[in-house]
Design a binder for these strands. Structure first.
Lengths: 149, 149
DNA sequence: ATATGTGCAAACGATTTGCAACCCT
DNA sequence: AGGGTTGCAAATCGTTTGCACATAT
C-alpha cells in the first residue's frame, strides 16, 4: 500500500519538500543531508539518531554519525523535525507537523502518539492557572499502554 | 516495631520514614543511604543525582557518586522516589508522593510543577480513546513558562 | 570564491558496571 | 557468618566539538 499524500503543512512532506525547505533557509543540500532526510521520510515512526545513522550508512557508507546529528540539528532549527526525549536512552525524531503528543509505555517501551488536541483543554486550564503554556511534541508523557495495563 | 501507619498523601515523609521503608523491603540501611535520603528530604525540589552527590559529599566525603545512583535506584525500586527526564541533561529526582506533573520551560529551563489532577480529565479521555493510561510524574511536559512566553 | 558542511577522532556528561573490600543484619 | 553495599576506576552510551578538507552555491 503506497500512501501518496503529499501536502505541505498538514500531510507528510516528501523528501523533496524537506530539501526545499532546507534550501529556502539558506542551508545547502548535500549528499549526507539527502540521505538523512530520505531515511527520515522512508523509515519507521520513531527513529533514534542511531536508527537513522544505521539506515543512512547502508546507501552511504561514508556518512558519519556526527553528520546525522548535525543534519537533524539543522532540520530542527528550521522547524521541520522535533525530537522527543524518552528518558532512558536516546531521543527519537519525527517530522514536526506530526503535531502529536507522545505516550511512552513505561513497561514495554512502546511509543504511542495521539493528536495534541486531546490535551488542548487541559493545556488551556493549566495555562490559566499557572501561566505555563504547554507545548506538546517535545517530550513524552509516560504511562501504561493497553497491553501492559 | 516499625511504624505501621500509611501516610498516603498527607505530608512529606521524613528521612526515617524512607529508611523504614528501605529496611522493610529487605534492603540495608547504610551511612551512604542515610546521607542520600537526608539530602533528598532536606534539599530543594528538583535535585539531579549530581546535586544530591554534591550535598552528600559535604557531610560524607567518602560517599561516591555511584552510591548515590545506586541508592536512588534502590529507592526507585521500592517506589519511594521517581525521576523525571528533562531532556537535555540529567534526570531530576523527587519523592514519589509528590504526585505532580512537571513542566519544563524550553527556553529558560525552569521546572514548574502542578498537581496531576490538572490533567486528570485529559488523562481520562485519552485513556478512553486510546487505551493508554497516562501516569504523570515520570516525565515532563515542555512548554513556555510565564516569563518566557 | 567562499562560506557551509563534512569526516574523523577525541572530548563530553550522565550513568553503569566489575571487582575486592566492607559492614549491616 | 554471609551477602548486600560500597568505593573506585574504567566502561558505556548518546551526543558534541575542533579541525583540516571537501563541496554546494
Amino acid at each position: 500500500m503506497s500512501s501518496s499524500d503529499n501536502e505541505l503543512s498538514s500531510g507528510s512532506p516528501t523528501a523533496e519538500d524537506l530539501l526545499d525547505r532546507l534550501r529556502a533557509s539558506g542551508a545547502r543540500v548535500t549528499a549526507a543531508r539527502r540521505a538523512v532526510i530520505q531515511a527520515l521520510v522512508d523509515g519507521g515512526p520513531h527513529p533514534t539518531a542511531e536508527d537513522l545513522a544505521a539506515k543512512v550508512v547502508i546507501s552511504h557508507p561514508d556518512v558519519h554519525r556526527s553528520s546525522v546529528y548535525r543534519t537533524l540539528d539543522a532540520l530542527a532549527e528550521i522547524g521541520v523535525v522535533s525530537h522527543v526525549h524518552l528518558g532512558h536512552g536516546s531521543a527519537v525524531y519525527h517530522l514536526s507537523d506530526d503535531d502529536d503528543l507522545h505516550l511512552l509505555c513505561r513497561l514495554c517501551g512502546a511509543v504511542d502518539h495521539i493528536p495534541s488536541t486531546a490535551m488542548a483543554a487541559a493545556a488551556r486550564s493549566i495555562e490559566q492557572e499557572t501561566g505555563f503554556a504547554i507545548r506538546p511534541g517535545h517530550y513524552a508523557l509516560s504511562g501504561l499502554c493497553e497491553r501492559c495495563k
